[in-house]
């Protein structure tokens, strides 16, 4: 066999394996990222698939059971304040979680309630504290 052929075979095998890996990886972990107001629009999604929803924690709706580390609150759309959805969550609550903050909730939507598996706070991203959004919320 010619050298060139051997190399080509090697490269093709690697690229093929790589393509399979990419495909497998993508199909495993694609997650929709949406606003609260988008939830109603998208009917076609798989019921059990995990999604990320971003919104603002509505002040005054937080119910906390700290002995069990459970929390529930309403999440409202960033732009349309009337669009809200309930979030239930059990686990460690991020330090920077507070009313009026923009958060990303990762979880499954059942009966118009998000059963959250993780809550990401967007606060650490505002190292420049003067960000307008944050000022408005205070």
């Amino acid at each position: 066999m010619k050298k060139r052929t051997k190399y080509s075979i090697g490269v093709v095998i690697i690229l093929f394996a790589f393509a399979i890996l990419l495909y497998k990886g993508l199909s495993k972990s694609m997650m929709a990222y949406m606003n609260v107001s988008d939830i109603g629009k998208i009917e076609s999604f798989n019921k059990d698939s995990i999604m990320q929803v971003t919104g603002i924690v509505v002040p005054g709706t937080i119910q906390n059971d700290s002995t069990k580390q459970q929390i529930s609150f309403m999440l409202r759309d960033l732009k349309k304040p009337k669009q809200v959805i309930q979030v239930n969550y059990a686990g460690l609550i991020p330090d920077s979680f507070k009313p009026g903050l923009q958060v990303v909730v990762i979880g499954i939507i059942k009966n118009k309630i998000i059963q959250a598996q993780r809550i990401l706070t967007k606060c650490p991203s505002k190292y420049n504290k003067n960000d307008e959004r944050e000022l408005k919320n205070d």
Binding site: A17, L21, G25, S29, M30, M31, A32, Y33
Partner: peptide, 18 residues
């Protein structure tokens, strides 16, 4: 038109064999 993120499972699936 819809934002889709890929999380750690994607990066791990691809990069562990690599």
């Amino acid at each position: 038109g819809i934002k889709i993120t890929v999380g750690p499972p994607f990066f791990n699936t691809v990069n562990v064999p690599i």
